[in-house]
Design a protein around this nucleic acid. Structure first.
Lengths: 211, 211
DNA sequence: CATAAAATAGCACGATCGTTCGTTCTTTTG
DNA sequence: CAAAAGAACGAACGATCGTGCTATTTTATG
C-alpha cells in the first residue's frame, strides 16, 4: 500500500524534498531562479540529476517551490515576529527592523527580489506567483500603516499605498546598496531615511486625535 | 592595406557591431545579461552565430559592451540634458524627471539595474563594471545635491550621500512598481515621494542664506 | 578589373541543459 | 522473512550553450 503522504508530513519523501529545497534556495540566492540548474543542484545536494528531478515534475515546478519557500521564510522572519507587537507604529517599526535583519542575512541575494526582476516582464506561473507575492506583501504594509493612522501615530490624511511605496523603496535601496557598497553603510542610510520618513508623516500636534 | 578603424569610426565593421549591440541591448532588457545567448542574438540580428561572435572575442566581452552601451544611453537621456539646466535644484529636478521618462521607455527592463542585481554578488569584469557604474552615478547625484546645498535650496546640514540614497531608492521603487503594477501608478508614487523628500530637506526659513 | 583583406558563413567540438525511461537499491508493509 | 512500493540511480535523448577552425563571400584597394 502507499503511504498517503501529505505535503507537511515528515516522511522520507518530504524530508529529502526539504533538503533539496534548502540547497536550491541557497543556490538561487546567488544565481537567481533562472540561473538554477538541476544538474548543479543535484551535485550540490549529492544526488543524481534524475533523483532530484523526480521530486519536482519539472524545472518550473522546482522554481515555484523555491519561490514559495522564500516567501515562507520571509514571512517567518519579517512579518510573524512583528505581529506580536501592538498594532500601529510599533508593529510597523518592527517590520522595518526585521526587514533590515533579513537583508543582512540575505546579503548574498534575496530570492524574492531577484525573482521579481527576473519575471516581472514575462508571463507564466512564475510571473503570476511573483505578482501575487508582491501585491500581497504591499497590502500587508498598507494594513500596518492603516493601523498607525488609526492610532494617530501618523498623519490622518496619510495615503497608505503612497507611504507603503516609500518604505518599500527604502528596502530596495537597502538591498541594492548592501550588495554593492556594503551592508553597514546601507543600513545607516536606510534607517536614517526611515526616521525622516516617519517625521514627514507625523501628525500635526493638536490637530489630530481630538474627540 | 587595412583601414585602421577606430571604435567610433563608421566603417562597415563598426556599423554592424552597433547593429548587433542594438539587438543585444533589447534582448538583454527582457532576459538580463545572463540570459543573453549568442545563438538567439544571431537569430535576432539575422546573422550566423560565428559572424556575431567574431565582433566580440567572447560572450563576456559582448556583455561588457552591452552594459557600456546601456550606460551611454542612460547618460544621454538622463544626465546630459540635465546639464543644460542651472546647477542646484533645477538640475536635480531635471535628473529625476528624465529618470522617470527613462523608466517609462524602459519598462521592459533597465539593463543597468538588472545587471546590478545579477552581478553584485559575484566577481569578475562584469561585477567591476557594474560597481564602477553605480558608484560613479551615485557620485554624480551627490554633486548635484551639493550644488543645491550651496544654492541654499536644500538644508545646509544635508548629508548628500544620504539624500542621494533616498532619491536612488525612489527610482528603484519606480522601476519595481512600474514593471509589476503599472507605470502610471508607479510614477505618481515616485513623484509624490520626491516632492515630500524635497520638503523634508527644505532649509529652515530665515536661518540659511544669511550673509 | 584584379587582388588583397576583411567580414561572414558553415561546421564541429565538448559541455551542459531539461527530460524520459528502465533498472537497482531502500524502505515499508503483510 | 517475503512481497510490494517508493526512492534514487544511470544512461541516453535532442537541444542549446560558448568557442574554435576553415571556407566562402563581400568589401576595399591599386
Amino acid at each position: 500500500m502507499h503511504m498517503n503522504y501529505t505535503a507537511t508530513s515528515t516522511g522520507k519523501r518530504a524530508a529529502t524534498r526539504e533538503l533539496i529545497l534548502e540547497h536550491a534556495y541557497q543556490l538561487a540566492r546567488r544565481d537567481g531562479l533562472e540561473g538554477l540548474s538541476i544538474g548543479s543542484l543535484a551535485q550540490d545536494v549529492g544526488m543524481s540529476k534524475s533523483g532530484v528531478f523526480a521530486h519536482f515534475g519539472s524545472r518550473e515546478d522546482l522554481q515555484l517551490a523555491v519561490l514559495e519557500a522564500g516567501q515562507l521564510r520571509f514571512l517567518q522572519q519579517v512579518k510573524w515576529p512583528a505581529l506580536k507587537l501592538p498594532r500601529g507604529l510599533p508593529r510597523l517599526r518592527a517590520i522595518v527592523a526585521n526587514w533590515v535583519t533579513w537583508a543582512q542575512e540575505y546579503q548574498s541575494g534575496c530570492v524574492l527580489l531577484t525573482a521579481a526582476s527576473e519575471y516581472d516582464g514575462r508571463e507564466g506561473p512564475l510571473h503570476d506567483m511573483v505578482t501575487r507575492q508582491q501585491s500581497g506583501w504591499r497590502q500587508e504594509m498598507c494594513r500596518a500603516i492603516d493601523h498607525a493612522v488609526a492610532n494617530g501615530e501618523v498623519s490622518g490624511d496619510t495615503d497608505a499605498p503612497q507611504m507603503a511605496f516609500e518604505i518599500y523603496a527604502l528596502m530596495l535601496g537597502l538591498h541594492h546598496d548592501a550588495a554593492l557598497f556594503g551592508f553597514e553603510e546601507a543600513r545607516r542610510h536606510t534607517l536614517a531615511a526611515f526616521e525622516r520618513l516617519l517625521v514627514s508623516y507625523r501628525p500635526l500636534p493638536g490637530r489630530e486625535a481630538a474627540p
